[in-house]
């Protein structure tokens, strides 16, 4: 008996990525830099979120040629993004044998109402969430890994912090609720009841939860890890900084030694300029990425 694509196999890869950093890359060369810095995986995409934000237009799945180039360049797992609801893009990435698919709000959504039925796929999915209800809905659709949405491409950690704190608070509420309260909580959160039961059984979210959306410094990574995240996605934060290789290494170190301020002080020094960043208040409502998806 051999079973592929089981939920345990899908969530198992996410478990192996814990305590690690997943970096956005747009070329094979960047992928090598990420791997040599100690990234546990890379996210292959056409443009980093900061450029998508700046340039506008419709952002889609990367060209398969690019994804393959990156897959050939490194031995660590390669992830790639599809538009929310775009199951055909996901079918293409599965055919390319990427290791994880990110159904991502960074790209322009393809379906106004529905996310992908992720149970249909052998390749596992990661999805963003702003709160526990969103995380539970994605898990019920088959996501095997969750990340905060934050506000991508801003270099501003505040939204990722907001999302993680809210999820923690809501998980505490689920864990302290008695059975009779749980259905109302399910209704309030918009969370499937069976996933809330799974949270109670596990004492935490039943899948790995990474931080994403705005992480730009080792201190940002350490803060998100101390808030209880299992690992870190860095999008624009590395390759929009002045010394990507050095910053990448520092963020990897910070994710492992997140609770050792002496080490953090040492690795945070002399990294050059971080990406410049955007205040959330300056982003027009219509350009917010985190509100995409249901």
């Amino acid at each position: 008996m051999v079973e592929k694509g089981t939920y345990r196999v899908k969530s198992g890869l996410a478990e192996m990525l814990k305590g690690g950093v997943i970096m956005d890359v747009t070329t094979a060369e960047q992928a090598k830099i990420a791997e040599e810095a100690g990234a546990v995986a890379v996210m292959a995409l056409e443009r980093v979120p900061a450029d998508i934000r700046a340039e506008g237009g419709v952002a889609r799945m990367a060209d398969p040629t690019k994804v393959k180039e990156i897959m050939d360049a490194v031995s660590i797992p390669v992830m790639a993004k599809v538009r929310i609801g775009h199951f055909a893009e996901a079918q293409i990435l599965q055919a390319l044998q990427v290791d994880y698919i990110d159904e991502s709000e960074v790209l322009t959504p393809a379906d106004p109402d529905y996310h992908i039925d992720k149970w249909e796929f052998t390749v596992p999915f990661v999805c963003g969430a702003r709160n526990l209800g969103e995380a539970c809905r994605r898990i019920a659709e088959g996501a095997a890994m969750i990340r905060t949405k934050g506000e991508p491409g801003t270099g501003n950690v505040i939204e990722a912090v907001r999302h993680m704190r809210l999820m923690n608070e809501q998980i505490r509420r689920v864990l302290s609720a008695d059975e009779s309260e749980l259905m109302t909580i399910a209704k309030d959160f918009g969370a499937p009841l069976e996933i809330l039961h799974a949270i109670r059984d596990a004492g935490r979210l039943p899948v790995v939860n990474f931080a994403a959306g705005g992480i730009a410094t080792p201190a940002d990574a350490a803060m998100m890890m101390q808030l209880g995240c299992d690992g870190i996605f860095v999008g624009s934060g590395i390759f929009k900084s002045s010394d990507p290789a050095r910053r990448a290494r520092a963020i990897v170190q910070a994710t492992t030694h997140y609770n050792d301020p002496d080490i953090l002080a040492e690795i945070s020094a002399g990294l050059g300029e971080a990406m410049s960043g955007i205040a959330i208040e300056q982003i027009p409502e219509a350009e917010m990425m985190q509100t995409r998806g249901k």
Partner: peptide, 26 residues
């Protein structure tokens, strides 16, 4: 292989048992 080839199965392990569940990931 890659993640799509990751799998779970049951293994016979010398000195331990004939029915040991095993998850293989990349």
């Amino acid at each position: 292989g890659r993640q799509v080839d990751s799998f779970e199965t049951i293994l016979k392990v010398e000195g331990i048992g004939e029915d040991v569940p095993a998850v293989f990931i990349r």
